[in-house]
């Protein structure tokens, strides 16, 4: 996708909350989060979600813990915090409002 594509910017702004929403379903690790997002049709270079996870952790929206998988590969598991749940609920409300406004304008119903 070209950087000037309008969806690149929208994706950038919403990806953080999509990741948070995936973690809210239960403890997840990075690889699994990427796969879930891809299954849902949200394709980004896989590396982009890791800096974002670091940010969520620093902001106290998630916590992380290292655990070894059966294969011997260590995984970093993320869990949502109460603050994360709050931020996600706020975003859901704002997004829903924003979506309604944009849909209405796009439909031409400027009332």
């Amino acid at each position: 996708m070209k950087p000037n594509n309008p969806f690149t910017q929208i994706k950038k702004g919403t990806l953080e909350y999509c990741v948070l929403a995936v973690i809210a379903r239960g403890e997840q690790y990075g690889y699994e989060i990427v796969k879930i997002l891809q299954e849902q049709g949200l394709n980004t270079p896989e590396g982009t979600i890791y800096p974002l996870l670091a940010r969520l952790k620093k902001d106290g929206l998630v916590t992380a813990v290292w655990r070894e998988a059966e294969s011997g590969n260590p995984r970093k598991y993320y869990t949502i915090t109460a603050r994360g749940e709050e931020a996600l609920a706020e975003f859901r409300a704002s997004w829903s409002e924003f979506k309604t406004v944009v849909d209405n304008i796009l439909r031409g119903g400027l009332d």
């Binding site: 690790y29 990075g30 690889y31 990427v34 270079p45 896989e46 590396g47 982009t48 890791y50 290292w66 998988a69 294969s71 590969n73 260590p74 995984r75 970093k76």
Partner: peptide, 30 residues
């Protein structure tokens, strides 16, 4: 450590691990 974990996991998801699909994994990562 976290990026290595991702790349190894993705690579292990291939039936057979070779240099070609490792490069593909790296390329997908960014």
């Amino acid at each position: 450590a976290e990026i290595r974990s991702h790349l190894v996991e993705e690579w292990q998801s291939f039936e057979e691990q070779n240099e070609e699909n490792l490069l593909q994994v790296i390329n997908n990562f960014g």
